[in-house]
Design a protein around this nucleic acid. Structure first.
Length: 284
DNA sequence: ATCCCCACCTGGCCGC
DNA sequence: TGCGGCCAGGTGGGGA
C-alpha cells in the first residue's frame, strides 16, 4: 500500500499523539502477520515509554525507553488508527485489527487485511539490523543525487523502473511514485539503468531529470498527505489527495495530460508490476 | 554477484 | 445473485 509519502504522513500522525506515552497493555490477534511476533513482544514493550517515532524508507520505528525499537512495515494494506480514550464511541474492534496498544491517553491499532506487513522488535542498534541496514538513499537526502546514482547505475543491466524501486538503491519509492516520476522526467520504461549513465560514469540529462523529479514529487505528495487509494487514510482517518494529480498511474487508456500530446496512457507489466506510461512523451 | 520471479493474503470490481 | 478471473501503494527469499 503505502510508499514513502504515505508512511511519512502516518509517522507524523503517530508522533503527534504518542510521543511520551507509556504502553500499558498490548493485544495481538491470533493470525500472524508476514513474520511471527517476537515471542517476548508484549512483555518487552509493556510499561515502557515511547520516546521517539521516526521513519526510514517505508519503515516506522518506535524507540522505547528501554532501548528497544519496534520496527513496523505496512506492506500493501497496513494502517494505523489512533483513538483518544475519552472518545468511547470509536472503540469497537474492526476486522483485521491485529495489534492493539493501550497507552495512557490513546489506543493505537494496527490493521492489515492482507497481512503483508509486519511488526518486529529489536534491541540491537538499527545499523546492525538486517532489514534496515541494507537500505539505500533516502530520496530527500542530499546524498541522493544524480552523481551518486550514476555510480550505482552504470553497470546495472536491469530496467530503469526496477532499479528505482530497489530499496537497496533508493529507499521508499514504490510503483506509483516511480511511474509518475518517470513520466515527469520523460524517461522510457524500456531503458536499462545503465542507459542513463554516460561512458565517463557521469549522469546523463535524463538521470538528472529523474532525480530532480523524484525529489519534487515526494515533497509534493507529503505536503498533500499522500495518495489515498483503496485502504489508505491518515491516522485520523482523513484522506490524502495526491492521487488527484496522477498523470499516468491508473490512467490506462486515458489521454496523456501533457499539452500537445494526444497519445493514450499504456499499461505494461514489468517484473510482475504494472507500469503506466505515455508512449508519446516517454520514448528514448 | 546480479537479476528475476514467486509467494504471502484479502477484497473489490468487472464480465458473464 | 453468484462465481471466476483479474487487479492492488511491497518485499524477503530462493532459483537461475
Amino acid at each position: 500500500m503505502p510508499e514513502l509519502p504515505e508512511v511519512e504522513t502516518i509517522k507524523e500522525g503517530l508522533r503527534n499523539s504518542l510521543i511520551g506515552q507509556k504502553i500499558l497493555k498490548v493485544n495481538l490477534s491470533k493470525k500472524k502477520l508476514r513474520f511471527p511476533y517476537d515471542k517476548d513482544f508484549k512483555r518487552s514493550i509493556s510499561n515502557k515509554k515511547i520516546i521517539d517515532i521516526t521513519r526510514r524508507a517505508k519503515y516506522i520505528l518506535f524507540s522505547l525507553s528501554n532501548g528497544f525499537t519496534i520496527i513496523s512495515h505496512l506492506g500493501m494494506s497496513g494502517s494505523y488508527r489512533i483513538i483518544e480514550k475519552s472518545e468511547k464511541r470509536d472503540l469497537k474492534r474492526l476486522k483485521h485489527d491485529h495489534v492493539i496498544i493501550n497507552l495512557e491517553d490513546f489506543i493505537v491499532i494496527y490493521n492489515d487485511p492482507r497481512r503483508f506487513g509486519y511488526i518486529l522488535l529489536t534491541n540491537k542498534p538499527l545499523s546492525e539490523y538486517k532489514l534496515i541496514n541494507y537500505l539505500g538513499f533516502e530520496p530527500l537526502s542530499k546524498d541522493f543525487n544524480a552523481e551518486n546514482i550514476a555510480k550505482v547505475f552504470h553497470n546495472k543491466d536491469r530496467n530503469i523502473k526496477n532499479a528505482l524501486m530497489d530499496q537497496k538503491i533508493i529507499a521508499g519509492l514504490g510503483n506509483i511514485y516511480v511511474c509518475e516520476a518517470m513520466f515527469r522526467a520523460k524517461v522510457s520504461p524500456f531503458l536499462l539503468a545503465k542507459d542513463l549513465v554516460s561512458e565517463n560514469l557521469k549522469p546523463k540529462r535524463h538521470l538528472k531529470e529523474l532525480v530532480d523529479n523524484i525529489k519534487i514529487i515526494i515533497r509534493e505528495a507529503i505536503n498533500m498527505g499522500g495518495s489515498s487509494l483503496r485502504d489508505y487514510t491518515q491516522t485520523d482517518g482523513r484522506m490524502g489527495y495526491f492521487q488527484n494529480t496522477f498523470d499516468v498511474y491508473g490512467r490506462e487508456g486515458k489521454i496523456c495530460s501533457s499539452k500537445n500530446c494526444s497519445h493514450l496512457i499504456m499499461r505494461i507489466i514489468q517484473s510482475n508490476r504494472s507500469t503506466f506510461f505515455c508512449p508519446g512523451c516517454q520514448k528514448n
